[in-house]
Design a binder for these strands. Sequence first.
RNA 1: GCCGUUGUAGCUCAGUGGUAGAGCACUUCCUUGGUAAGGAAGAGGUCGAGAGUUCAAUUCUCUUCAACGGCUCCA
Length: 640
Amino acid sequence: MINITLPDGSVRQCTPETTAMEIARQISEGLARNVLAALVNDEIWDSFRPLKKDCSLKLLTWDDKEGKYAFWHSSAHLMAEALEALYPGIKFGIGPPIENGFYYDVDFGGKPFTADQLEAVENKMKELTSADNTYSRREVSKKEAIEYFTQKGDQYKLELIEGLEDGQITFYHQGNFTDLCKGPHIPSTGKIKAVKLLNIAGAYWRGDEKNKQLTRIYGITFPKAKELSEYLFMLEEAKKRDHRKLGKELELFMFSDKVGQGLPIWLPRGTMIRERLERYMRKEQTERGYVQVVTPHIGKKDLYVTSGHYEKYGKDSFKPIHTPEEGEEFFLKPMNCPHHCEIYGNKPRSYKELPLRIAEFGTVYRYEQSGELNGLTRVRGFTQDDAHIFCTDDQIKEEFKSVIDLVMEVFIKLGFENYTAQISLRDKTNREKYIGSDSNWDKAEKAISEAALEKGLKTITEYGEAAFYGPKLDFMVKDAIGRSWQLGTIQVDYNLPERFELEYITSENTKARPVMIHRAPFGSLERFIGVLIEHCNGNFPLWLTPDQVAILPISEKYEEFAKNILNYLEKYDIRGLIDNRNEKIGRKIRDAEMKKIPIMLIIGEQEQENNELSVREHRTGDIGKMKPEMFVEYFKNKLI
RNA sequence: GCCGUUGUAGCUCAGUGGUAGAGCACUUCCUUGGUAAGGAAGAGGUCGAGAGUUCAAUUCUCUUCAACGGCUCCA
C-alpha cells in the first residue's frame, strides 16, 4: 500500500497501481469527469498513470493552467492524427500547447497546404473526438524509438530522439497515431468537445532560418462548445480594438507607400495625442531635474565608429547618406546616445554636476526587417522619450530607482495595470558578444536587481536578453490580442562613456569615468500610443483625447450660440469642435459617439434662452443641463 | 529577409477573358429637426505597379511594391 497526500492534507492509502483518475473517482464522479492531468509531487503526470510510490497529488482540471496545457497538447496530437489520416506520409516537427491553444509543425513533403483545407482537418478531428479514443503512455528504449521513426521516415522526430537520453523516452498513442512525447495527456479524445483551427504560417524547423520551413497549423480546442464561441467572440472584439484599425477610423495616423514602409505619418488628431504625451513627460522630467536638448537626425559615420554601433549594426541599417564631399558619410541616427555623449563631452564636467540628466524627444531610424513591421508597434522611424543620465557608480542605484518611479507614475496615469518588468542579464555561457569588463557588468547587474527589488517590482529575470553594452530593465505590456510589447526601458551602460572617453573631476581633483543610464518611460511614442489605443479601445483619457467636447447645435439657428460656447470653453483650455452640418441631432450624436468624443454638448432653443448646455457623455448618455460655468467645473473634475 | 494569404471608389467589400458594382463617406438640393443613421440627386476607379500570353487582361502567367498571419531578427 502507498500513501497519497491530497492538497487539503488528507492522506489516502491505496495500491501502487492506483491512478490519479481512480482517486478522483473515489472523491466524486463529477470531479473524475473533469480531471485532465495530475500534479504528482512537482511533476505533471497523466491521470491514467499508476502512482507507484508515496506522493502528494493535486488533480488538474480545465481551471488549472497545467490542465489546459495537457488538454491542448492532446489536441495537437489529435490534429496530427487527423492530418495523417487525410495526408498519409506527411512528417511532423513539434506540436506543443501554447498560451491560447496549440500548434503542430508539419512537412507536407512539398505539396501545398492552404487555409481552405483546414475545415476538412477540423471535421476529421471532430470525427475522432466522437470515437473517444484513449491516450496511452509507453516507455520505450532509444533503439525502439529510432526504429519506429526510421520506419516511418520522420527525420524530424529522429533528430529530436538523438538529443534524448535512453530510458527517458516515451511514446503516446491514441487511435491510429503514435508520437514521441513526454506528455502528459488527457484521458481520451472525447473530452475535446469544440475544435477550431485558426490559421497557418511558415515556421523554420527548430527556429533556424537555415533549416527547412515547415507549415505551422494553429488551433484551439475547448471542453465545452460554449467556451469556443466565447473565445471566438473575444477574438472578434480584440480585432475591433486593433490600433491599426482604430488609427484609421479615428484618423490618428496613416502610412503611405510613397513615403515608405514602417514610417508612420501622424495626422492632426494623432499629433494632438503625441504632443500631450510629450508635454506631460516634459513636465514630469523637469520636476525630476532633467534638462531638455535637441540634436540632429543624422550624424557622421565617425560618431558611430566611436560609439561602436557602426561595427555592430552598420551593415544592417539604412545605407549611409553621401554628400558632394568625397568620402563623407552620414547615417540616420539609430539612437540618441552618441549625440548626448557629445553634449556631455562639450566641456569639462565636475562631480558637482552629476547626475546630469539629458533628455530629448529624439526621432531615430532603424532598418527593421520588412516582415517584422507592424502598425505602430514595430516601425522604422520613431520618436523616443529618451534621456541619458550621466552619474557616478554610487549614484546608479538611486537614479535607477527614481526612473522606476517615473515609469510607474506614467503607467498609473495611463491606466496600465497589467505590466511586467523584465530584468535582462548576460548569457551565462556565451560572454563573447558583450562589450565591457566583467566587473562592470557584475556591478551593473547587481544595481538593477536591487533597485527593482527595493521598488517592489514584479520581475522576471532573463539571461541572455541583455543589450550588447549593458543589462537592462524592460517594462512589458500586453496588447488587445495578447501580444506582449516592450514599452519603457532602463539600461545601464558602462561602455559608451568609455568609448567617448567621458570624464568628470572628482572632489579629490582626480579624473573619473561617469556611468550612463539610458531610459525611456514610453519607449517609443509610436509603440506606446499603439498599445494605448488598444488598451483603452480608442477611448482616451479626457486629458489626452484629441477632441474633448463636441458641440452639437439642434439646427443652424443656434450656430452663433455654439461659437460663443466654444470660445468660452477654449478660455479654460477645453478643446472642442462644432458639428454644424445640416443634419438632425440624432445623427450628430451618433457620429460623435462613433468618433469616441468623450463629451457632447447639445444646444437648441431651450439652452440658448437660459444660457445652458445639455451635457451628454460618450457611452453613458444624457446627464442633464448645466450653466457654462458649472460645466467647466464639472469638466475640470473629470480631468483628474 | 523567409513561407503563406491578400490588394477593385475615401472606408468596408461584391464581381467578370469583351475596359466595373453595392453600402457607408463625399458634393448639391429639400428638410430646421431634441439624445446613436431624415429624403432626393450627383460626383467619384489606369481594378496596387510593370512586363508577358491573347483579337481582347481588372480577370491567366511572371516580376515587383505594399498590407496581413507566422518564422527569424531587433541598438
